[in-house]
Design a protein around this nucleic acid. Structure first.
Lengths: 239, 239
DNA sequence: TGAAACATAGTTGTCATACGAATTTGACGA
DNA sequence: TCGTCAAATTCGTATGACAACTATGTTTCA
């Protein structure tokens, strides 16, 4: 077993066995090196791997800590990588959205309150009045994330966030297409909101499903076309 | 910007910009150090982070390579960490299963062929005849994974695999409870298979939904009880 | 007494060097 | 043509050193 595996397994075992609980501070790197019998470099590589997966957090000068180990955070660690997926992979993810977003909408319809409906309506007003792609994209994201949050499952919200972050990064190059997309998108948003306002899970779910299906249509349409990513940096889970 | 961030961002940019494509070999560590202006230690920590997330693969003596960047693989990287989630998180994940598994069952019902139905029926025969927990668990997993694979979305399969891997790791301590669980579980499996054999997506979906709901019931029932994980090692995605 | 400034010890961040382990490559010879 | 072996290349690991940052306790001043 390699030194890195030893370090990784040792750290993981400490947490799995409950010797280290969420929020706990790990022993110093020096101590861990002696305990696990590996060099500091190998130990640090192991720590970094668990940090990348959202299990550990390191603070310079202070120490490494076990994260809260929330499902949403672990899922959120994917946000670093989905931005690297080729288009073929994006289609697979869109199909997941096609299941998850309607589910979230249905749950939200059963839980949403009047104040949140007002807030969402205001967001849609802004979206419809906006011509700026950047602003539109941000508000669109806020709209869907709010619905997801109302649904009440943080892991679901985080997963939807990760999946959406990819489709969001593309801009429709053709102006006419973009206008058409926005027209349908605005109508789709209103349909979802109507379902939520009516506390009708089926209507909200159906509207959300249609909305994602529309996105999927555009993704497919431009899959074999020259599209440019909006940038290499993928928005993180926590805004 | 710290040296690690420099390395991480540099590597990520190389892939995001298309200078490195899936399957490509990275420049040697020495070259990358010079290119990015960081020490070898920092560079390796960055490489390890991306490796943990399923973006890079390193082969001793040969080099580091960009992975195939399949959505399923990136999702599969979560399997290392879901095993560390506390019970509260498992419930969140079970709710996700409650959406995803019925979806997979519905898709499978529309695509499955006679040979696969036969195969699944054989698996259920084995399950029903088995008293061994370990064997039962493995066959149960094979049953559900086969359905998911028939559904035809690798990302969906991988996600279901990750989510299931956690619930799978627990053993019902009370013998009576375990027998009751198995009874209902067997019936649930048959119901799913009937839906698949009838090429009836609605029936298959409903049966899968009920099946997960049953799992959720047992998870909740034992959430505040003394349960022991079957082991610290979580089964990986690729057997 | 209280609080601000400081000094100190402890911890992570980074770098440089060296050598072992595995793979790859090319030359050599049958 | 093929197998064998040696050299070169590359990753794996260990060690030492110092910088950067944090936390803590102490001193000093108002």
């Amino acid at each position: 077993m390699s030194a890195l595996d030893t370090a990784l397994h040792g750290l993981r075992t400490l947490i799995a066995d409950g010797e280290l609980k969420p929020g706990d501070r790990l022993p110093s790197e020096g101590e861990l090196c002696e305990t696990l019998g590996v060099s500091r470099g190998s130990l640090r590589e192991g720590i970094r791997m668990l940090a990348a997966l959202g299990v550990l957090e390191t603070r310079h000068g202070s120490g490494s800590y076990v994260s809260e180990l929330r499902a949403a955070d672990l899922i959120g660690s994917l946000s670093l990588t989905v931005g690297l997926l080729p288009m073929a992979g994006v289609l697979e993810l869109t199909e997941l959205r096609r299941v998850l977003e309607p589910h979230a909408a249905a749950l939200a319809a059963a839980r949403i309150d009047a104040a949140t409906i007002e807030e969402l309506s205001g967001v849609l007003d802004e979206i419809e009045a906006s011509d700026d792609f950047e602003l539109h994209s941000r508000l669109d994201h806020a709209f869907h994330m709010t619905i997801s949050e109302v649904a009440g499952n943080d892991a679901l919200t985080s997963l939807i966030d990760v999946l959406r972050s990819r489709s969001r990064a593309y801009r429709i190059p053709d102006a006419g297409d973009a206008a058409e997309l926005k027209l349908h998108s605005d109508a789709g948003h209103r349909a979802i909101l109507r379902g939520l306002a009516a506390a009708d899970p089926v209507a909200a779910s159906a509207a959300a499903s249609a909305h994602v299906a529309q996105t999927e249509y555009w993704v497919r349409r431009y899959t074999d076309t020259d599209m440019r990513a909006e940038g290499s940096s993928v928005p993180s889970t926590s805004p």
